[in-house]
Design a protein around this nucleic acid. Structure first.
Lengths: 330, 330
DNA sequence: CTGTTAGCGCGTTCAG
DNA sequence: CTGAACGCGCTAACAG
């Protein structure tokens, strides 16, 4: 049976308005009364009622984590469900200690995004991996927002991963362990900006241009690219391969296994995303960890600030190299 | 700018109470007025304010999805994060079309569970994979609840998976495709009731007792068990193996690969859980799908009913065989 | 079946 | 810096 503000006011010997102020603008209350309120709150287990405060405030008291709905996810798309649990937990850790609640929401169309505003669903939006056009829709609602994880155009509020730095980190890991003959397997370079960034970051570190194969993303795409690369590896023209993401890397590993190429004996491999299920591979795949926890906790707290004080949000988080057995010193 | 009930009442030419009733007990309103309210609501984009209704109702308007917090998850534990995204989506699909909001919550101690009541955090609790002792704590709060997925003692409200039927389904799949020499790899049979149920279901279908290896759960445990089983497979004493879960099965596959035993050429395999990342294995692992979507949507709607009308909840959902390349007709 | 009315717990004026 | 008082949008009596 939760206590109410009025009871606490009585117990602490202050007015109800003072109790309210203690929770919304502590500095405007004298230290003495503030402490008395805190003490009474602790003694009687008082927590402000979120529904009442949101109602009074003319707000929803809700922060929305927004993602694109995928009706029938392909197997490859489902792998990224994986990240979702981490993302939720990171956002929750910040939101829970604010006066807001977290709400998960997915949209199928731009119309759905407009409806968020019209139906008054939330006070702030955290966009999970949305493309520029989708973020633009969110921006149009006028609700405070931040786009996360994916790189988006500079006019949007965003906290995202420095994909270029990620590619460069892979190259540095190879170079640091004595590799000299790099290759890169990408996926749909023409259509996927992220792939371009990773590739540009990777090539930036080498004196001579790495070999590059531009295949399809995903396990199957990786398998084909891996087969394409096998002869060159066998000839000794390539001693390390950076693969644009872990999912694609799984296909590469399968192709190399079929071609009797040993990892890391014959060639070293680094993936990207650090998806944990790569532990199902014969050897632990080195990868680039997205630091998603950092991205989303940063985004959530910046958004809360933005709701209060306005302004813009722009932060870039550098991913980190996650070592594995697939890289061997040469 | 969301519309309010009072405006809709005016537009529809009815009283405010009637509008309220249309959303809370539609049958108590004449069809004529009901339609007028719906029409006005649609025209002006009216949606009842959840904060206001929860406040007035003296409730929270929140359903909680509760799980145990794992501070530093082991790699094996992290694999089950996977299921979490599916669970959330299933629960959301039901809660979203009710007047409730979904809230995710984790606890570290029994004290945390008691605090849910004291702080008035929710009107109903969906327990995700909790053990009997934890469910008992939840039950003690007096808040309507349902325990999910794990089998729990009969005195608790629960919707869970029929693990015995799952084991039996694996046996039937083997028998139906002409297998005659079964084995089972389990994990910590003494301590894990689920493992016992799966094993009992499996053995129930065979005339002669299957070979059984009781190792440790997880990839490493499976690897050891797989090594132990290899000689018997090579001798032709075993033509099919049911493994207590997919994670353990991954270890088994690795061990058999090392022992140059071909799947499904030399032996057929069926896992349990149908975790999608088994697609990273050389062959698609047949498995038993938990039907978690069904479990959690059922649980959520039963819980909503329970909040309204009381009563008890007890449903058992049978898992389904999910075919794969790891089983071949003999 | 329908309308009138009294608060649910709180944030925020407005006076002091 | 503090307190009194109003009303956010809604549900649930109650009276017709």
């Amino acid at each position: 049976m939760p206590t109410t503000r009025d009871e606490i006011a009585k117990k602490a010997g202050v007015s109800t308005a003072t109790v309210s102020r203690v929770y919304n603008d502590p500095d405007s209350v004298s230290a003495d009364k503030r402490e008395r309120v805190y003490a009474a709150a602790k003694r009687f287990g008082y927590v402000p009622n979120k529904n009442a405060s949101a109602l009074r405030r003319n707000a929803t008291g809700t922060i929305m984590l927004l993602e694109r709905r995928i009706e029938n996810p392909s197997p490859d798309e489902r792998y990224y469900n994986w990240l979702y649990a981490d993302v939720i937990k990171a956002v929750k850790s910040v939101i829970d200690s604010s006066m807001y609640q977290l709400n998960l929401h997915s949209f199928a169309s731009g119309e759905d995004i407009r409806a968020i505003k019209e139906r008054g669903l939330c006070d702030g939006i955290i966009c999970h991996s949305l493309a520029d056009a989708e973020v633009a829709r969110v921006c149009d609602t006028g609700i405070p927002y931040v786009a996360c994880y994916r790189t988006v155009a500079p006019e949007f509020n965003a906290v995202f991963v420095d994909e270029y730095a990620g590619g460069a980190a892979a190259a540095k890991a190879f170079i640091g362990s004595g590799h000299r003959k790099p290759a890169h397997i990408t996926g749909e370079l023409e259509h996927v900006p992220v792939c371009r960034d990773r590739w540009n970051g990777f090539r930036s570190q080498w004196e001579r241009e790495p070999v590059m194969i531009n295949g399809l993303l995903g396990i199957k795409g990786g398998y084909e690219s891996g087969r394409g690369l096998a002869p060159a590896i066998r000839r000794g023209d390539i001693d390390c391969v950076f693969i644009v993401n872990d999912l694609t890397a799984i296909g590469v590993v399968q192709a190399l296994a079929e071609a009797k190429i040993d990892i890391p004996g014959d060639v070293s491999l680094i993936g990207y995303d650090n998806l944990p299920f790569t532990a199902t591979l014969p050897c632990r795949l080195a990868s680039i960890d997205l630091s998603l926890k950092r991205v989303y906790t940063t985004a959530a707290s910046r958004l809360l600030g933005n709701i209060k004080d306005g302004g813009t949000i722009r932060e870039i988080v550098a991913p980190e190299y996650a070592p594995g057995d697939s890289v061997r010193r040469r």
